[in-house]
């Protein structure tokens, strides 16, 4: 065989490679020409030994070129055919990609629970730890240690649920403030805690009342804590929750367990402070009660009011949720209607 025969053989092989229409057929072609034992090109290569040294160089070069060319062609054709077969296989698995789908079924947070987590996050940023306390309390912690002795008029606003005997010594806490007492009695200042939790008051259910609702209490006790610190903290937190451009005002108030006492209002989002039905024509919506912890309450908590001071505040996440999400009825928060929950 000469280099010319080799060329012819190569041309034939290339033609067959191009003509192969399946991976299987292509493999047959490969075996026919490049098979290790009896491939036509392989055999042609073995002839090298028979040639005279002066012929070998030229024939060797021609052979290497030819076999290289064939391998490249096989590889290319192999890729072409594989891609085609994959495409065919995929076509057979056609689906309607426009078909409507079922949602993956991620559950939704409750707006109040979600808001409480958000409040916890804001306060965590300021170094506050979230703690819990019992929902059933004694008169001592719910009232007396908080400067509300029996018959104190401020108890009127806390229309209290009492338990029947034999558990008659217990009541459903009317606010989360008793946890302030427990925190002060349980550890030493500095103290920064928030207390989210359920409370209950004897209010008949109506659009603005549910007998059970939530509060988030906060307490900061340290040396040199001022009302300015309270104001700064409330402004920070209210902006974090209601947006940076929301107007906030602090107004003097009265709570037996704080003095001075303050309430915080935010400008009504519905009317921007002009006055509307949502804010009862006031232009402002009350969202939070607060104040400097009363010296007597500090003393009851084992904290010396001569060396330490503190502030406390309490807000209603139910009410804030209603305001923020434009709900019209507080009772909706406890119906767990999925049409509502799925909005969050």
């Amino acid at each position: 065989m000469t280099s010319v025969d080799l060329q012819e053989l190569t041309a034939m092989a290339l033609e067959e490679i191009a003509g192969a229409d399946s991976l299987e057929g292509l493999d047959e072609v490969r075996l026919r020409y490049l098979g290790r034992r009896d491939g036509l090109v392989t055999l042609a290569g073995q002839r090298l030994r028979e040639l005279s040294p002066d012929q070998r160089a030229a024939y060797g070069q021609a052979f290497n070129r030819a076999s290289g060319e064939l391998r490249a062609a096989l590889e290319t054709r192999q890729r072409e055919l594989a891609a085609g077969e994959e495409a065919e296989r995929e076509d057979a698995e056609w689906v309607d990609m426009s078909h409507p789908f079922r949602e993956p079924g991620q559950g939704h947070p409750h707006p109040v629970a979600g808001l409480i987590r958000e409040i916890e996050d804001v306060f965590a940023f300021l170094g506050y730890q979230s703690v819990a306390g019992p929902e059933l309390e004694d008169d001592q912690h719910n009232f007396q240690l908080l400067n509300m002795p029996p018959e104190h008029p401020a108890r009127d606003a806390h229309d209290t649920f009492y338990l029947s005997p034999p558990a008659g010594g217990w009541l459903y806490r009317t606010h989360t403030s008793p946890v302030q007492m427990r925190a002060m009695l349980g550890s030493r200042p500095p103290l920064r805690i928030i207390v989210p939790g359920r409370v209950a008051r004897r209010d008949n259910p109506d659009p603005t009342h549910t007998p059970v609702f939530h509060q988030v209490e906060g307490l900061c006790v340290d040396r040199g804590v001022t009302l300015g610190d309270l104001k700064g903290t409330l402004e920070y937190v209210i902006r974090a929750l209601f947006g940076g451009d929301r107007r906030v005002r602090l107004r003097a108030s009265f709570f037996p367990y704080t003095e001075p006492s303050l309430e915080a209002d935010v400008a009504c989002a519905v009317c921007q402070g002009v006055g509307c039905r949502t804010c009862l024509q006031k232009g402002w919506i009350e969202i939070l009660g607060s104040g400097m912890v009363h010296p007597e309450v500090l003393r009851n908590g084992g904290v010396d009011p001569e060396t330490h001071s503190g502030f406390a505040f309490g807000m209603g996440p139910d009410r804030i949720a209603v305001l923020r999400y434009g709900l019209t009825d507080l009772r909706d928060l406890y119906e767990n209607d999925l049409r509502l929950l799925e909005c969050f």
Binding site: Q106, G107, A113, V212, N336, L341
Partner: peptide, 15 residues
């Protein structure tokens, strides 16, 4: 964990 498993969060009165 519960929400990831497809359950939505409910709150009911404790009374």
């Amino acid at each position: 964990t519960c929400r990831a498993a497809g359950f939505s969060e409910a709150l009911s009165l404790s009374l």
